[in-house]
């Protein structure tokens, strides 16, 4: 039974618990014409390279339900006069036929979208990717922003070095893969899973990617090296460390307009939840519409790639994971997981 003193203490000390509030709001936004979205990338790796065209979606829409745009005519031309006409393969994807990206060459995307809208990118020079010297990880405990609970995990970092001629406008991409093991036989209601028989859906491979662009900060980077770049946080759980976790990092040097786009996009994603309410702004990209009044947002990039990978073993986890079976079809327990073993998994 609480006495007066403890009630008083609770009232005095407890009220700050409810001071700040976060509430969902429904905005009444003006409607308008949805712009075309163009994503194009040419690398020095074996092709084909891909250009994707889609439409933007309303704010309360779902960006997984992307609407591809077919029927565009696209070409990529290099500074040696070579031109590759891209082939549409449906759902807004267009692939190169003969083009192989070469370091030192400059590439330009041009084309016509449905409705006669002409587009053109800036000329993108393919620069060397530099050296990805090492990928390493450190154990940490980080607060989950949604639940407020401390989560154990690994922070992944890279160290990189570059030629003195490098602009140090570097972008990294993270690709994480882990083996997911579930027990579909534990599902009995409403009915047992058919795939439980003969373990057809109990071993999957799930993938993770970075959620915000990872780019260097040219204001503070060193002259020929960039060390301890934070890449990703891997939460430790029965899901991710049933076996081991594969970390693959891709590094590339990008042009100024492409760097500006991804740097600003990163700020946009971070600032969207900032206390100081910085003003939001349009992201420009480097693809423009040639017709006045047409609305196009696009990023076309030409970059050499360098990749490196490591495996983080289960034994690297500094505590014993509670062995608890995961019920369900492994293909649906984690989105975009597959029973197909990736070719790089060994």
């Amino acid at each position: 039974m609480m006495n007066k003193k403890s009630i008083a203490q609770l009232l005095i000390l407890g009220f700050p618990l409810w001071l700040g509030c976060v509430d969902k709001v429904n905005l009444s936004l003006p409607s308008g014409k949805l712009p075309f979205i163009i994503e194009g990338f040419v690398s020095d790796q074996a092709g084909p390279d891909t250009v994707k065209i889609s439409k933007a979606f309303p704010v309360d829409g779902n960006y997984y339900s992307r609407v591809g745009v077919d029927g565009a005519n696209l070409t990529i031309t290099d500074d040696a006069g070579n031109t590759d006409g891209l082939t549409g393969i449906g759902k807004g994807f267009y692939v190169t036929n003969t083009l192989v990206g070469t370091i030192g060459r400059t590439y330009t995307l041009r084309g016509t979208l449905p409705g006669g809208i002409g587009i053109e990118s800036t000329a993108e020079r393919m620069a060397p990717a530099g050296n990805l010297d090492s990928i390493y990880y450190e154990y940490t405990e980080t607060e989950n922003t949604n639940t407020g609970v401390l989560e154990p995990g690994f922070n992944v970092y890279v160290n990189s070095t570059f030629d003195p001629s490098s602009s140090l406008r570097i972008r990294w991409k993270f690709y994480g893969t882990y083996k997911l093991v579930t027990d579909p036989s534990l599902i009995q209601t409403p009915r047992p899973l058919a795939c439980a028989e003969r373990c057809q859906c109990c071993v999957c491979f799930a993938s993770e990617f970075e959620t915000t662009p990872i780019v260097s900060d040219t204001r503070t980077a060193g002259s020929t090296s960039i060390n301890r770049t934070f890449i990703h946080f891997i939460p430790i759980s029965n899901y991710t460390f049933n076996d081991r976790y594969r970390v693959e990092v891709t590094q590339m040097e990008i042009s100024q307009p492409v760097y500006d786009f991804y740097f600003d996009l990163k700020r946009q994603i971070i600032n969207a939840a900032s206390l100081f309410q910085p003003p939001f702004f349009e992201l420009n990209g480097n693809v423009r519409a040639l017709n006045s009044g047409a609305n196009v947002i696009g990023v076309f990039s030409a970059a050499a790639l360098i990749k490196k990978y490591i495996y983080i073993k289960k034994s690297a986890v500094p505590f014993e994971l509670v062995s608890e079976a995961i019920a369900g079809d492994c293909r649906s327990v984690v989105e975009n997981s597959t029973t197909t073993v990736p070719p790089f998994w060994n």
Binding site: L29, L34, P35, A56, V59, Y63, P279, F280, I297, V299
Partner: peptide, 10 residues
């Protein structure tokens, strides 16, 4: 200033 539309890029 609030967003009018959303889209994905890479």
């Amino acid at each position: 200033t609030v967003p009018s539309f959303g889209y994905t890029m890479d």
